[in-house]
Design a protein around this nucleic acid. Sequence first.
RNA 1: GCCCAGGUGGUGGAAUGGUAGACACGAAGGACUUAAAAUCCUUUGGCCUCACGGCUGUGCGGGUUCAAGUCCCGCCCCGGGUACCA
Length: 949
Amino acid sequence: MFRTISTVLLTMEYNFKEIESRWQSQWKQDKTYKVEIDPKKPKFYVLDMFPYPSGAGLHVGHPLGYIASDIYARYKRQKGFNVLHPMGYDAYGLPAEQYAIQTGQHPAVTTEQNIKRYREQLDKIGFSFDWDREIRTCDADYYRWTQWAFVRMFDSYYCNQSQQARPIAELIDCFAKQGNEGLDVAHSVDISFTAQEWNAWNERRQQEVLMNYRMAYLAEIAVNWCEDLGTVLANDEVQDGVSIRGGYPVIQKKMQQWSLRVSAYSQRLLDGLDTIDWSQSIKETQKNWIGRSEGATVTFDIFDPNPSHKDSGANDHSVTVFTTRPDTIYGVTFMVLAPESEYVNIVATSEQKKEVDNYIERTLKRTERERIADKRVTGVFSGSYAINPISKQHIPIYISDYVLAGYGTGAIMAVPAHDSRDYAFAKHFDLPIIPLVEGADVSNESFDVKEGIMINSPVKTTDEGQLILNGLSVKDAIKRANEYIEQTGLGKVKVNYRLRDAIFSRQRYWGEPFPIYYKDGMPYAVEDADLPIRLPDVDKFLPTDAGEPPLGRAKNWTYKGYPLELSTMPGFAGSSAYYLRYEDPNNKDALVSEHANGYWRNVDLYLGGSEHATGHLIYCRFWTKFLFDYGYIKDDEPFAKLLNQGMIQGRSNFVYRIKNTNKFVSYNLKEQYDITEIHVDVNIVDNDVLDLEKFRNWRPEFARAEFVLEEDGKYRCGWAVEKMSKSMYNVVNPDDIVEQYGADTLRLYEMFLGPIEQSKPWDTKGIDGVHRFLKKLWALVYGNDGRLLINDQTPTAEELKTLHKTIKKVAFDIENFSFNTSVSAFMICVNELSAAKCSKRAVLEPLSIILAPFAPHIAEEIYHLCGNTTTVCQAIFPECNEEYLVENSVKYPVSFNGKVRFTIELPADMLPKDVEATALAHTDTAKWLDGKTIKKVIVVPKKIVNIVM
RNA sequence: GCCCAGGUGGUGGAAUGGUAGACACGAAGGACUUAAAAUCCUUUGGCCUCACGGCUGUGCGGGUUCAAGUCCCGCCCCGGGUACCA
């Protein structure tokens, strides 16, 4: 038996502490939440974004999503599903390392401590995680598979033809046979070579060329360098020119870095969005991040003023641009190159060289933030002219930082009339502006909209096949121009993506080491059999004196006598495929076995914050598609449904100190004084009333504080909704709530706060409502005298109706993730049962089952008090019996011109015409008609009567 | 600037186009108690009225409809994402 007679007799009041600790240890002992593959049952995979175990521990905002997913997981179990619901830790990360640098404590030690603390906090809330499947990204048994996946990427290229990753060996074969002629594969830079050339190259040269194609590649690229963190960052880790973590300035710097060719998957990442059930806003964000745009490349020859050997006037060089508006080719009045563009060296003339160099030096010195903040137009003339390939006009080539090196070709054809950035530049440098759309007034601003009728292209056909656009709509003109460009070989129709490859190196210690060693200066992958490459010990977590990353300090950091890579992997490495490892956490031979993945497949429901839209949620999708291409897993999307829980904000309290005194004035009197607003710890404020004694003890400087109180003798605090943070003194710890009210109350209250996807402030004062609800429920189980009230009487029709409408509502709400309204439904149910003094087993037992997902401890207790000896977690969720819900009569609101005036109660099955007759015959009807004639009477059966006059 | 969500009492929020404000919190009053806690009862959008009752009301202005918080158009405000992406 799970309970003893003595506890039952002693339990009169709702003793949540005793109930919760008893069931938590019972569940642990019984391994109630352990899950194994069971082919007889349908599977369901519910996953939370695993936490980074920070030193601050959890606050009440963190468990919000965990509670919601736990409710869903428990519900699905009761509905007969075999539910995988695991938890683990994203244990690598910068804060632990920063802390290590300051204190000398090894990040592994602090991380372990933090995990222990997280676990204690999580355990108190009663989650149904299968902890036997726990993973930590910093465990060698785990990151072995992160390294393994990296090696697979290193050994792969992306075939654009078949749209999938393939083994690099295939590409090598191909190079040996036919060179790279006509190959459509993802690559970094355009090169071309024959089989002969390939075969003649030495190994080093061949390896260099292969780097151009690998899915995981090493390249000299402009990266986001953060000096203060001493590392590079990925695009999603930088915002407004500063690092998201810490807010340190980030500059562009050319460095040799590992990157993942995420961009190869752009189109599939875009298309996949249509197959998954994610919120519209996240899909939209990803769409924008991927940034597909259709256009064309156009090649402009460079004008040679001294054509010694050619007639065309062109020298040997040309510049290729990407444009989405090829229709505006006749409005191109200049060309602009990014300062980092390789074309710069070609076009800068000797006369302009000094000025160009000055400009480039100036721009590169500025951080991205400065460049963004400064809206002034800057740029420099290169000295060269390009030849418009269609109009044959000569146009000046400028260099300006408003053109980005990383997008398109790093060069643009400028059409000031129809692009606001080009317009600003043209105005500044006094360049011509030629409108190309009928009626476009470009005297003050450009006309950027892609609509209208084209003008200003040559009217007469001078050459065969001359491009004439006049009279066409913009849309048709784009089409025509594209055709023309393709036919004449001036360029190619091309789709461009904004999505960039992910920079994968970090010059830090606390991350996964790369399974890469260097031979003859070229990187090679470690053999699978030698994985994992374990993170070595170092004497300090700082760069070496030579400026190498911390791993440069490690002793014997070699593989087969060759030096190992010194960078480590970024935070997103370990979190990109972790959901797969939960399916088979102890597998020594594979990331996940075919058997396990064949059963568990991808995640059915994923919960987490929407702030990961452009980072984690893209990388996971990329990583999954890669593994899918090789057949390691069966789904090419990781998360079938995604639910973004809103943030829980803090509700701060303020006191008002009268300036230059130690006197504090209450909120409603503060207008009479010159005051300073000061944050006060919300934990010493109850319902906005300050506990004066606790305030005096809070901080030494307030020990002798004096107060100006309100008439009722209370000190009222002001309040505001802010981010929950230590500095605002508004952090609420779930441990304190559990201590005071119990886990079931915390769970219910977090759900009761509002819709799960919405951000809302935490205000502890409302928690009494849900706690009272549990006490009321408990009062149905035990009387004041401690007598067990549960009995075997037959429920009344009303009681059954109460029960079944609650079953229906709760099931519907859970399936629609409307957890706040199901808590209301429970309250209504218990209010009705209390009014009826119903303690009947036939009602309380099913009620305990449907309540179990929300408040598992009290539900388990009641379920057992009803005589059950197995766990409520495995009980079958009851079906709603519609028969009990049938209403005999309906209250019809009777409205006149839409305004409800009175109600009449009528039999539910009364025919509409009879309802109408009854309403018209009602004594009050004449009064409201007020002599007017009836035009129409609307009767909506079981809803409403509307009399139109 | 662009994209996406949202705007309902003192507060959190509820409402398949069909009685707006469910369910809670808070507040006010009352019962029980020596007292407090706990519990229970009543009232609680605003305005008018002793009351019966009426008027009004879901950011603002229009529209569709027998009927609009809900659908459509325009605007305002708040939150989030993104930004020289050619």
